[in-house]
Amino acid sequence: MAAEKLSANFKRNMFTENQVLRAILGICSSLAVTNTMRNSLVMGLGVAFVTGLSSLTLSAMREVIPHRIRMLVQTLVIAVYVILVDLLLQAYLPEVSKQLGPYVGLIITNCIIMGRAEAYAQSNPPIPAMFDGFFAGLGYAMILLMVSFIRELLGFGTLFGFQVIHTAPENLWTIMIMPPAAFFIIGSMIWFISARAARKAAAKAK
C-alpha cells in the first residue's frame, strides 16, 4: 500500500470517510452522550485517545500477534486504554465520569476502534497508524459535537453549560434532550451526506 500523506489521511477520516456518517460505526455511544456538549467533548477526546494509542500498539505488534487470536489481543489492548481513560476521568473530572456512567466502559465495544485496527493498523507502520486512529477519533468527536450543539442549544438553551438563549424553561424543546431527537438528528445528517454523495457519483458518471 502506498504511503498516504498525513493531510490526506486527516481529510479522509474527518470528512470523506467519516466513521459515523459514512461507515455507520460507533453509533451507540455517539447517540447517548450527545445531550450536552461537555460530555460529547470528553467522550470524543477519550475515543480519539484510545483509537490513536491502540492503533499505535497494535500496529507495532502486528508482526507478533498470531492471526487467529488477533481479535482477542485487539480487545485486550483496547480495554487497557479504556481503563486508563476511565481512571483519568474518575480522578480529574469525577462529575463528567458520573454522567457518562457505563458509556466510558463501552468505548471497548465501539466499533470504530476495532475497525481502524483491522482496516489500517494491521497493514501500516505504527506512526501513521497512530495518526489514522487519532484522526478517525477526531472525526467521531466532530460529529458528536455537531449533534450535541443542536441538542443542547435547543433543549437546555445552553452551550457548554453557558446560558445562550434567555427564555422561559417551557419555551425550550424538551424533546431535544430526550432519546428520539438523537435518532432524528443523526438520521438527517446521514440522509444529507449520502444524498450528496449519490448526486456527486451521478454527476461523475455522466
Partner: peptide, 13 residues
C-alpha cells in the same frame, strides 16, 4: 439518500 441507515434512524426515532 434516505434509503438504508438514514431511514432506519428516522423510523427508530
Amino acid at each position: 439518500g434516505v434509503k438504508g441507515p438514514a431511514l432506519s434512524f428516522i423510523i427508530t426515532g
